[in-house]
């Protein structure tokens, strides 16, 4: 499967990916509802960290409800019907790649759709085999 890969050194912090993601997933342009996060380095202004799920699957056994599963394409996804919004997986994600918004019950996480990579002007994010 192809997942989002990153080259943070190319990122200019425009945030287009976050807007694209929230639009694809939740039909709003709101970086707070994005599964990919661009965060400026405190110690190095002008440089950015990119956080996004790498589909490692470490969250799978953590979920009490079997809401987390590996989809056919290999992506780790959340079954909204089963998820009770406990956020254990968020706290247990080794890559800090899951997010929470009070209006959304389930954690916000990447489904590997690629929408963000298509809007990135610098090539800092792109789709590639896992």
């Amino acid at each position: 499967m192809k997942i989002v890969k990153t080259k943070p050194e190319l990122c200019n912090g425009c945030g287009a990916c976050m807007t694209a993601c929230s639009k694809t997933r939740y039909k709003v342009e709101d970086p707070e509802k994005s599964a990919i996060r661009i965060i400026e380095k405190a110690e190095k202004p002008g440089s950015f960290d990119i956080f996004v799920c790498n589909h490692c699957g470490e969250c799978l056994p953590v979920c009490n409800t079997e809401a987390l599963y590996q989809a056919k394409n290999g992506a780790i996804r959340i079954d909204d019907k089963k998820c009770v919004g406990c956020y254990i997986c968020v706290g247990f994600c080794p890559n800090n790649a899951m997010y929470v918004h009070p209006d959304i019950n389930e954690p916000i996480k990447c489904i590997a759709c690629g929408a963000c990579t298509r809007v990135c002007p610098t090539g800092a994010i792109y789709m590639e085999e896992k």
Partner: peptide, 13 residues
């Protein structure tokens, strides 16, 4: 609730 929850899940992890 979320703020407290994320902190403690991480702590336990």
């Amino acid at each position: 609730i979320i703020n407290a929850a994320l902190k403690i899940h991480k702590e336990i992890h």
